[in-house]
Design a protein around this nucleic acid. Structure first.
Length: 139
DNA sequence: GCCAACGTTGGC
DNA sequence: GCCAACGTTGGC
């Protein structure tokens, strides 16, 4: 039975928590999501899924790939119940970061949910989009 | 620094 | 339940 591979994208201000911080930590609980749509995506994550790591703010580029280490659990940093966090582990930095400009100039990738909805901090990525990102990143 | 897009809040 | 006002986010 072929294993279904799923892809996601999380966004982070590098000034708050950069890929380098993440790589140094060797993994982190993705906490602090306080948006229902983003929360629903977090809840959809399954162990082994791949997660693109995007730097917002000045950089605006996808910089690395992470992996989901486990199912969503209650967010320990939340004041109210109902919010979740997911344990993520770094896999590798992209050989070539993919900038937002590149994404927007690509017919397929400019359709990405997170490109269309820039404020969404966690989003899903389709297999086709993931393939294209990985193709660009290995150039 | 500005502004568009979006989500949340609170008065009615 | 509607909607105006407000706050936040993030691209430009």
């Amino acid at each position: 039975m072929p294993k279904e591979m799923r892809y996601w994208l999380v966004k982070q201000e590098p000034e708050d928590y950069s890929w380098d911080n993440f790589a140094k930590d060797g993994g982190t609980d993705w906490t602090g999501v306080r948006n229902y749509q983003a929360r629903n995506f977090l809840q959809g994550m399954k162990k082994g899924d791949s997660v693109f790591f995007y730097h917002s703010g000045k950089e605006k580029q996808i910089v690395g790939i992470a992996k989901v280490e486990g199912e969503a659990v209650a967010d320990s940093t939340a004041d109210e119940p109902g919010w979740v966090m997911v344990r993520l582990k770094p896999v590798k930095a992209l050989a070539q970061p993919i900038t937002l400009v590149q994404l927007k100039s690509n017919a397929l990738l400019k359709q990405m949910l997170f490109v269309r909805q820039s404020r969404l901090s966690v989003s899903s990525v389709t297999q086709e989009e993931a393939d294209e990102i990985l193709r660009l990143a290995s150039k």
